[in-house]
Design a protein around this nucleic acid. Structure first.
Length: 488
RNA sequence: CGGGGAGUGGCGCAGUCCGGUAGCGCAUUCGCUUUGGGAGCGAAGGGUCGCAGGUUCAAAUCCUGUCUCCCCGACCA
């Protein structure tokens, strides 16, 4: 049977869509730009969520839940913020339908006095709430996160990478001092970096956004930027130092030890289901999805092979014992006992779905007390003794996790360039793509010019040692090289 | 939101130009044979042709509107 997945070299966008579909992660819904996340995709998101949630809890954060609907007036309280989101808000204007010969229509009598906005992000309603929670320095800090869905009315959508409704977490913290808020912002950035690298096996560059790429309402936006296989960058997470902007807009003050009333300092930070898109485009190949073991809903699948009923019974019993041992080692293992598919079909299917390790067992293996392992990432096979199965499995999963990261890092290094002149910059961008470090004079004008002329944007100003130089475009002074790329 | 392409059983497509009452492959169901890399043969089921109007004796096909998807652009996590 023909491959169902378009080759990356033929059409990268189509390949991405094919992988999402064949791995059964998600599909389009009847509503424009909105997706159905299928059980496999949701299980993957849940694993990401659980890991992140634990990291948040370990750093003193608590979960809460704020409403989906935000009064329209709240959005207009912070000027920058409104401007950033005004163009992509879903608005609820009515509260009722009425039946009209066989169908329904909006009941004009049910018009809301004040329209409700479906949250594009929750800063406004949260800060309106925090005003009541905060009186004294003793009430600070407030370290709250919420797991929620948000809606942004996007013009152009792609599964996971940009959908009108998506799942995410948004952390919102309030602090007595600027230093503490900045520290929180950077701490969460570091958590995102750790998560991306250790769980997703996806190397990222941490940095701060330029003014034009900054979150609406933030003083500083920090980010993690990853590089996809096709040489385009993906913003994978953001952490914002909000200064006192929302405190001012929502009049959130506290009485400090010295008796003075002061405005609180704020942060917010988030990652979304977009991470799944990043995960796909970091590791997957022409056979389908490749998942890092730490996040894979199923880490190992056992495929039994048999002819007769006697063989079936024997092989399945052997498989059960393997399954039990794997589970005792805390491994998420599954045996594919479906009787109506041939092993070859199962191999291909589990590969498309990205299960990191496959164990195939047949009558020969049962007789010789062996197992055949197949790694999803390298597509390599080996046969070992059954003895020590659990330990071997754990070791292989660790190796795969590490190898995925190493390969992604090597690819990124290979796809990262450093240039001195604008000519060189344009050439590298056209020929090779990827991350490009170059000097920039720090002005929005130059940034805009580069973007218009090359479609490359400044992904971030990296948080590394700054070596001064001169701007590749204007020749003016530059504090340090910044990271450019074409981006998703 | 602008430009281009596309919507026909679950999936992929032909049929549309030139109107005549829907077909192919895969998948599904049943039977038999199979099973170490996407099984074979036989039989069966399944579609108001995205949706809504219009033209016509007759519409998948022509006209108008509308929704959704893909690609490119502007905007954005």
């Amino acid at each position: 049977m023909a491959k169902r997945i378009t080759k990356r070299s033929d059409d990268y966008s189509q390949w991405y869509l094919d992988v999402v579909k064949e791995a059964q992660l998600a599909e389009h819904s009847p509503v424009r730009g909105s997706m159905v996340i299928r059980p496999t995709g949701m299980a993957l998101w849940e694993n990401m969520r659980n890991a992140l949630d634990q990291m948040f809890k370990d750093t003193g954060h608590e979960n809460a839940y704020f409403p989906l609907f935000i009064p329209k007036s709240f959005l207009s309280k912070e000027a920058q913020h409104v401007e950033g989101f005004a163009k992509e808000c879903a608005v609820v204007t009515h509260s009722r339908l009425k039946s009209v010969d066989g169908g329904v229509e909006v009941d004009p009598d049910s018009r809301l006095e004040e329209e409700l906005i479906v949250r594009p992000t929750s800063e406004t309603i949260i800060w309106d709430t925090y005003r009541n929670w905060i009186q004294s320095y003793r009430d600070l800090p407030i370290l709250v996160n919420q797991w929620a869905n948000v809606v942004r009315w996007e013009m152009r959508t792609r599964l996971f990478l940009r959908t009108m409704e998506f799942l995410w977490q948004e952390g919102h913290t309030a602090h007595a001092t600027k230093e503490e808020a900045v520290e929180e912002t950077l701490q969460m950035l570091e958590i995102y970096r750790t998560f991306a690298e250790e769980f997703m096996a996806m190397p990222v560059v941490t940095g701060v956004k330029t003014a034009s790429e900054r979150f609406a309402g933030a003083e500083d936006t920090y980010c993690i930027e990853a590089l996809m296989q096709d040489g385009k960058a993906l913003q994978a997470g953001t952490s914002h130092f909000l200064g006192q902007n929302f405190a001012k807009a929502f009049e959130v003050t506290f009485q400090d030890k010295d008796g003075d009333h002061k405005l609180v300092w704020a942060t917010s930070w988030g990652v979304s289901t977009r991470l799944i898109g990043g995960l796909i485009m970091t590791h997957s190949d022409d056979n389908g999805l490749v998942l890092p073991p730490k996040l894979a809903p199923r880490q190992i699948v056992i495929v039994p092979i048999y002819r007769s009923d006697e063989e079936r019974e024997m092989v399945l019993a052997y498989g059960e014992s393997l399954l039990n041992e794997l589970k005792e080692h805390g491994i998420r293992a599954h045996m594919d006992t479906r009787d109506t598919y041939k092993p070859g079909f199962k191999f291909a299917e589990h590969e498309a779905r990205g299960i990191p390790l496959r164990i195939a067992i047949g009558p020969r293996d049962v007789e010789n007390n062996k197992v055949e392992w197949a790694r999803r990432d390298t597509l390599s096979k080996e046969i070992t003794e059954r003895e020590g199965l659990g330990a071997r499995a754990a070791e292989l999963l660790n190796t795969i996790q590490q190898d995925l990261y190493d390969r992604a890092l090597a690819r990124r290094s290979e796809m990262t360039s450093e240039v001195e002149t604008y000519e060189e910059f344009k050439e590298v961008l056209e020929q090779k793509g990827g991350f490009i470090y170059a000097h920039w004079d720090g002005t929005a004008e130059t940034e805009e010019r580069i973007k218009n002329e090359t479609k490359a944007t400044i992904r971030c100003i990296p948080l590394t040692e700054a070596t001064p130089g001169t701007c590749m475009v204007t020749g003016k002074a530059s504090k340090q090289k910044v990271l450019f790329a074409r981006a998703y």
